[in-house]
C-alpha cells in the first residue's frame, strides 16, 4: 500500500469523530455538592453510610440525604464546562472526569520517608468550602465524574455520577446504565478503610439493585421499535463487569468518549472499572429486554437472583399516544 492511500484510510476515523450533532462553542456552569448520604439496601432496614453528589442546594443539608448516584450532567461538545463543588463532608473532596482532557493540580503529601505522594489528582474543596473546576473544549460522549481525592476510598463511598456530552446522529434516544458496587464493611469505618480488602455485596445499576422477588427496575429510554437506541454504559465500581443484552447484538461504537474506527457487533461487552462505553442497538420487537452482568454480580447481600439486572423497555411507535397501555406495558 502506498503512503497516500494509507493516509486516506487513517482519515476515516477522524471523519466519524465529528459526526455528532452540530457543535456550538459555549460555556456552561453546573453546581454540585458532596454530602453525607444514606442508602437503604432492599434486604435491610439499616441504612448504609454513603457520600454522594447532589445538585448544590446552596447550603449544606442539615441531615444525610437519600443516596443516589450523582445527578446526570449534560454538556455540549466543544463547550467549556465549569463545575462548582460545595464540600459538605469533613474531609477534602475534589472532582475529576477521567475521560476529559484536563490540566490537573495534584495535591501531595510527604510520607515518613520523605517521598511525595499524590493524595488528590487535582485541587480540592476543603471541608465546608467550595472549589471550581473547568474543562475546556469538552469531548462528546459518555463520561464518569468522580472524586479525585483519596479515590480508593471516596469513589467507593459513592462520590460518582455520569456526564453525557452531545448525541450521536444515529440514535435519537439514549439510556444511561451506571454500574457500581457497595461494600458495606468499608462504609461503616470509611476513615480506616483498607481498600484491598474490598468485597462488595451490593451490585447496582443507576443506584439501584434488583432483589429477588421485587420488581425489576425498568429503564425507559422512550425507545421505539425501528429507532436506534444509544446505550451509555459506565462503571463507577472498582471491579469489571460484563453487561449482556439478552437476545440481540449491539454495536459498540465508542469508549471513554472516543469513537472506534469500526463498530464492534457484540451481545456482551467488558465494562472495566472506570470505563464508559457507548453502544447502539436497533430493537426489532417491543417488550422488556433483560440487560445484566454476565460476570454474575447477580446477587444481593449474598442471596442469588438479585444484583445488576434491568429491563430495557421498547415500545411500538404508536403506543406513545396511548399512555394507559404504555403504563401497563411496563
Amino acid at each position: 500500500m502506498n503512503r497516500t492511500s494509507l493516509l486516506k484510510s487513517l482519515r476515516i476515523p477522524v471523519l466519524l469523530l465529528v459526526a455528532f450533532f452540530s457543535v456550538a462553542s459555549s460555556s456552561f456552569a453546573l453546581n454540585l455538592a458532596a454530602v453525607e448520604a444514606r442508602w437503604t439496601p432492599p434486604d435491610s432496614a439499616t441504612p448504609i453510610r454513603m457520600w454522594g453528589f447532589i445538585p448544590d442546594p446552596g447550603s449544606c443539608p442539615a441531615s444525610p440525604v437519600a443516596w443516589n448516584v450523582g445527578p446526570l450532567q449534560i454538556g455540549t461538545p466543544g463547550a467549556n464546562l465549569t463545575i462548582t463543588l460545595r464540600n459538605c463532608l469533613s474531609e477534602p473532596v475534589s472532582l475529576v472526569i477521567p475521560g476529559q482532557n484536563a490540566t490537573l493540580t495534584p495535591q501531595e503529601i510527604t510520607d515518613g520517608q520523605g517521598r511525595k505522594r499524590v493524595r488528590a489528582f487535582t485541587h480540592e474543596a476543603p471541608a465546608g468550602g467550595t472549589a471550581s473546576y473547568t474543562w475546556n473544549n469538552i469531548k462528546a460522549g459518555t463520561f464518569l465524574y468522580q472524586s479525585g481525592s483519596s479515590p480508593a476510598k471516596q469513589v467507593h463511598m459513592g462520590l460518582y455520577g455520569a456526564l453525557k456530552v452531545g448525541q450521536y446522529y444515529e440514535a435519537p434516544n439514549d439510556v444511561l446504565l451506571l454500574f457500581s458496587e457497595i461494600d458495606p464493611a468499608l462504609h461503616a469505618t470509611a476513615a480506616a478503610a483498607t481498600p484491598l480488602s474490598y468485597r462488595p455485596k451490593y451490585f447496582l445499576i443507576n443506584g439501584k439493585t434488583y432483589s429477588s422477588g421485587q420488581q425489576i427496575p425498568v429503564v425507559d429510554g422512550n425507545s421505539r421499535v425501528t429507532n436506534n437506541l444509544l446505550i451509555r454504559f459506565a462503571n463507577a465500581g472498582l471491579m469489571s463487569h460484563t453487561p449482556v443484552l439478552q437476545g440481540p447484538h449491539m454495536k459498540i461504537i465508542a469508549e471513554d468518549g472516543n469513537r472506534y474506527p469500526y463498530a464492534r457487533e457484540q451481545y456482551s461487552v467488558l465494562l472495566a472499572a472506570g470505563k464508559t462505553l457507548d453502544a447502539i442497538w436497533h430493537p426489532t420487537d417491543s417488550g422488556n429486554y433483560a440487560l445484566y452482568d454476565r460476570s454474575l454480580s447477580l446477587s444481593s447481600n449474598g442471596a442469588p437472583g438479585g444484583g445488576m439486572l434491568v429491563y430495557l423497555n421498547v415500545r411500538f411507535p404508536w403506543i406513545m399516544f396511548i399512555p394507559a397501555i404504555t403504563g401497563a406495558g411496563r
Binding site: R199, P200, S297, N301, G302, A303
Partner: peptide, 9 residues
C-alpha cells in the same frame, strides 16, 4: 447459599 456471601465474595 443465601446465608453466605460466597456469590458476592
Amino acid at each position: 447459599v443465601a446465608g453466605t456471601d460466597y456469590l458476592a465474595n
